[in-house]
């Protein structure tokens, strides 16, 4: 079972890597952000698979950590895109 889960994690890793590179070639920031989101989800999945495959339950905590931080890139990005920062600097 363990090697099958490893195989699944390799598969997920390769998939998201593929997606990542293809998207990073595009120049739009939104696409880059989606790539981060994709890799974030992929990373969480990989960690969960690894936790079970290598029987290291604390690894799930790492996945929780990643999941908690998953939205922050988007939050920072939107703050940038909405232009609020520029106004705030002017005051």
């Amino acid at each position: 079972m363990s090697s099958l889960l490893f195989a699944a994690s390799v598969f997920v890793l390769l998939t998201v890597a593929l997606g990542l590179f293809a998207i990073l070639r595009r120049s739009a920031d939104v696409d880059r952000l989606m790539a981060v989101q994709l890799l974030g989800t992929g990373g969480v999945a990989i960690l969960l698979l690894l936790a079970v495959a290598s029987e290291m339950p604390p690894v799930v905590d790492v996945a929780v950590m990643l999941a908690l931080f998953a939205a922050f890139a988007a939050v920072a990005f939107v703050r940038n895109a909405s232009g609020v920062s520029r106004e705030a600097r002017g005051e």
Binding site: G40, T41, V44, A67, A70, A71, A74, V75, F77, V78
Partner: peptide, 15 residues
């Protein structure tokens, strides 16, 4: 992940 995915999608779409 669902929560953050949903919010991120909303935020990005809004942007």
């Amino acid at each position: 992940v669902q929560l953050s995915g949903a919010v991120v999608t909303q935020l990005v779409a809004g942007a």
